[in-house]
Design a protein around this nucleic acid. Structure first.
Lengths: 232, 232
DNA sequence: CTTCTTATGCCAACACAGTTGACCTTACGC
DNA sequence: GCGTAAGGTCAACTGTGTTGGCATAAGAAG
């Protein structure tokens, strides 16, 4: 076992695995994302990863301190994807909306990975870049530092929170998914109006509404609040 | 292994375990909550639960279909605690605020358990009661069914999402907690102003702000939006 | 081109997890 | 009291993360 993991830049020796492939942080993370997509958020394991990469599971410990460390790296990769290509235009509201939607989208498009990473603070490069971007937009919009920090907090937490929730429902394995659908239709749909009048009345609407994400509307609410502070 | 689990009401035989204690759904859930609090969200396992209850791990399968089923039951217990004692007063805004804060508080006061359960739809009794309560408040406030459902969706998702996020940071084991604190202070605190000017400027405020939950302010924003719809 | 060092892949083993099937004992309904 | 079956127990299976020791080949040095 390595005492300390060699950082990717310092890595010199590129020894191929027995089957010929050459490992790297990037390759490992990519394969992990594939495994997560194919086998669900519980389908990522050191042994399965070793199988997919055709290497011994313990080889992974030369690249990450453990599975948890790998998880954080995956999370940072997602943020990186969200930020890729984003540039501030100067129109704060549009910038912030795009940023929020991009982060939300990046997580939700890898639901199984998102489930594992949304609520972790990594301090890695891409996460820092995202924080810097949000704070930058808010301050150039005209907010004082203190207010910018408060809004930043609400913004980033709300985005991650909804991403986590939306990802969680997308990440459910097919069986559980059908089970939850069944719960909505059978339990909620056939609830006696005597005991649960409001659910009974809303049942058909519930089934369609609960599929969509509530994030876009929540985001607009937050942007409205920021706008109010800027004029006031 | 039991083909189907006997529901708690139908349970007749109360056979004591070898050490004398008599098992029950309630006792098992309580013990599980204790284990979660004491050993963190990864500290709940069938074997440890068996040890704490002084019974064989496989005995649990007479009460729950598996660890996942137990998890859902724990979640429903938390919602039950949140609802316990809540009554609608007729003042919709106050009712909704109290409901939101109660649910958020219930989850956050069992962070380790919340991490496991926040994003699961169970269809169990207490969850149904909570949904019925929210829809009831919104409709008696004067919202049409369609709008009530949309607001209900945003409300419940937002509450659970923030609960999950806030719980996650509270649930981190001490070591990881210190590590994240370290990340905030060292990484964010000593970031060169050249590359990350906005984080550098906001660093002292970030450290204090990021400890608080952003839920209360997010909740007020949502209530404002509902109020706007009611007058319009 | 040879030699040396050490990074890094591989192997075997550990303790822990969830889950199951067979067994057996004992509480309860009659 | 008796018969039944609920439910606690045991042993075993597969899968997990992680580690220490070992072997080998990549790349630096000469």
């Amino acid at each position: 076992m390595p005492k300390a993991v060699v950082s990717e830049e310092k890595r010199r020796r590129r020894r191929p695995t027995r089957s010929g492939t050459v490992l790297s942080e990037h390759l490992i993370i990519d394969t992990a994302l594939r495994l997560l997509r194919e086998h669900g958020s519980a389908g990522l394991s050191a042994r399965r990863l070793g199988l997919a990469l055709d290497c011994d599971p313990s080889a992974l410990y030369r690249y990450f301190r453990g599975m948890d460390d790998l998880t954080l790296a995956i999370g940072d990769t997602l943020i990186g994807q969200a930020l890729d290509g984003w540039r501030p235009t100067g129109a704060w509201r549009e910038d912030l909306r795009r940023l929020g939607m991009r982060i939300h989208t990046a997580y939700v498009s890898h639901p199984q990975a998102a489930v594992l990473t949304t609520s972790r603070v990594t301090g890695r490069a891409n996460e820092l870049a995202a924080d810097e971007a949000v704070l930058g937009v808010l301050r150039t919009a005209g907010l004082a530092v203190g207010e910018a920090v408060r809004v930043y907090h609400a913004f980033i937490d709300q985005t991650l929170a909804f991403a986590a929730l939306d990802a969680a429902s997308l990440a459910l394995p097919n069986a559980a998914l059908r089970a939850e659908d069944e719960v909505w239709r059978s339990t909620y749909g056939h609830l006696p109006a005597a005991s649960h009048p409001n659910i009974a009345a809303a049942a058909p609407l519930l089934a369609t509404e609960m599929v969509r994400s509530a994030y876009p509307s929540a985001l607009e609410l937050l942007l409205d609040a920021v706008a109010a502070r800027l004029v006031g």
